[in-house]
């Protein structure tokens, strides 16, 4: 069984990799298995964790969970064409709660905190900063400022304003470049992990 299992894993791994050569039957088979298995995986997991774990055994004496179950039932009403419109209610509920929650969360963490951290004594407290820090602080202040100017929609990007926006887009591009570099790093690591499985765990060729 142990041998069978690792060969199955290797077979499927190679199946996905074979897509690099071209779209072929081996890949399509692996892909179909993947779509089926992953849909089923989430289906089962969500049932046991959320419906069973959270509601069926987990509700305790918290009557509020019945509201959740009720919303869930309304959602399933979509299966009955005549009353399908009622599934808009739970949807409205979720969207409303998300909107409220995100409004506050993003405002406090991403606006307030980030503005707080951008506002700093550029030369250090009591002019204590080293040249390295000083340049860095100025770069951050200028970059954040001009980046925000780029996102200004209700004013034409011309003149000084346009120039600032241009500087902003430069900063955004550097950010994307850095992000790109890190993504390459990440993806290569994952490939290394997979090839380590093939050559190491499966075939035992790595010392």
């Amino acid at each position: 069984m142990e041998h069978f299992a690792i060969w199955v894993a290797a077979f499927l791994t190679m199946g996905i990799i074979s897509f690099l050569y071209k779209d072929n039957a081996w890949y399509k088979l692996s892909e179909a298995i993947f779509v089926g298995i992953s849909a089923g995986y989430w289906f089962v997991t969500l049932f046991w964790d959320n419906i069973y774990g959270k509601f069926w055994v987990g509700r305790g004496d918290d009557a509020m969970l019945y509201i959740g179950a009720f919303l869930g039932l309304l959602m399933l009403m979509r299966l009955v064409p005549k009353v399908g419109w009622i599934s808009r209610w739970p949807l409205a509920f979720i969207v409303g709660a998300t909107a409220g929650f995100y409004l506050i969360n993003y405002f406090s963490s991403n606006v307030m905190r980030q503005v707080e951290d951008t506002i700093m004594p550029l030369l250090g407290t009591d002019y204590s900063a080293t040249t390295y820090d000083m340049i860095g602080n100025i770069v951050i202040a200028v970059g954040t400022f001009s980046g925000l100017v780029y996102f200004f929609f209700s004013k034409e990007h011309k003149g000084v304003f346009g120039g600032t926006a241009k500087v902003g887009i430069f900063f955004l591009m550097i950010t994307f470049g850095a992000s790109f570099g890190y993504t390459v790093m990440s993806r290569m690591s994952l490939l290394i992990g997979r090839l380590d499985f093939l050559f190491g765990d499966w075939l035992g060729m790595i010392k």
């Binding site: 980030q114 951050i140 890190y182």
Partner: peptide, 17 residues
């Protein structure tokens, strides 16, 4: 973090979060 996530977390280091 995975390297993909890391750049987004750099502002948090600067700010001490």
């Amino acid at each position: 973090n995975t390297a993909v996530q890391a750049p987004q977390c750099y502002p948090y280091i600067r700010s001490g979060q």
